[in-house]
Design a protein around this nucleic acid. Structure first.
Lengths: 181, 181
DNA sequence: GTCTATAGATCGATAGAC
DNA sequence: GTCTATCGATCTATAGAC
């Protein structure tokens, strides 16, 4: 099994149980490795596994979604590409995404600063793009917050309603309203 | 300390750490009671504490928010009252709300059916109200999903961005667009 | 109704064989 | 690089004094 596949299996455990609920026993069982093998790959134990997954998720979300906002296309085009990228990001099994799972309890204490900084940077980038699209600064920030809120909210909604299609439908809606508004 | 205050303190622990991360030691420490005392009040242990809090949260959300949708006012008026009620519900310290905290891991397995049924019922009620407001059935369901998604998403966003005001601002936005759209 | 003390299971983490 | 065996800490839950 290669590294990417191992990380993917470990990530599922964190997403399913949250950071504190993802015990080493569960991580070992779902990865097919013994506990000691996990410590061979991640000497820092559970905290290092979590940090590796979290930074990987941030990197992937940056590359798939937010990078589109830094390109040269017109602002509304960039925004719809961002939404598409976010949808792609969620397709590798990231139902309620890993970053949300890490926003609770001791995971937040351990890794929260890095997440919070990255998040604020993304938030500012998105607001700047709305501003380029013609919104005044204040309004642009609120549009950015609203868009982020919808994206995260729909992820949770898809799980609560046990309806994966709900997320895809809301993505289509979002793109339409972005192009229209 | 009365029962309501005890439940409120216990709820904070579940919201902070998620269901699996809310250990009896933390629950005892934050409630100011010993572990054995908790078992006196909740013979079923952690599972009963969780179930009590969850059904209380569902009841409160029904009463404060969704009940408004069952009244006789015109549909758009009911919808804005629903949004107001949802905002009120979140003010008793329910940052990312308890129901969201229970949507992970073993809490979902233990209490998920009750949550899922209640949630689908709420979702249908909200869709019906949008339908009364003039939307066709399909469109009404999507408006309902979008609204629920925004509400839940903004809760998470307020935590990630460490900006409680963001939620309040998005509520104002939502009401305006509901009245306009 | 609350406490201390503790049982038995499981936790994160390590040692050492292969 | 993976395993079994095991450590001390912490977990859920209980017993019994007050």
């Amino acid at each position: 099994m290669d590294q990417a596949q191992l990380l993917s299996r470990l990530q599922l455990v964190f997403q399913e149980h949250g950071y504190e609920g993802a015990t080493l026993s569960k991580l070992a069982a779902h990865s097919g490795l013994g506990k000691a093998s996990l410590y061979h790959h991640f000497p820092g134990g559970k905290a290092e596994i979590g940090a590796t997954l979290l930074s990987g998720a941030i990197e992937r979300l940056e590359k798939l979604a937010f990078a589109a906002l830094r390109q040269n296309a017109n602002p509304r085009q960039r925004l719809t590409e961002f939404v598409d990228g976010f949808a792609t990001y969620t397709e590798d099994g990231a139902s309620p995404c890993l970053i949300a799972a890490f926003s609770q309890g001791s995971a937040w204490v351990a890794h929260g600063d890095a997440v919070a900084e990255q998040f604020q940077s993304w938030r500012a980038l998105l607001a700047a793009t709305f501003q380029e699209a013609g919104y005044k600064p204040r309004r642009a920030r609120r549009e950015a917050d609203a868009l982020l809120g919808v994206l995260y909210g729909q992820l949770l909604l898809a799980k609560l309603s046990d309806d994966p299609g709900a997320f895809r439908r809301s993505i289509k809606r979002l793109k339409k309203s972005l192009l229209a508004g």
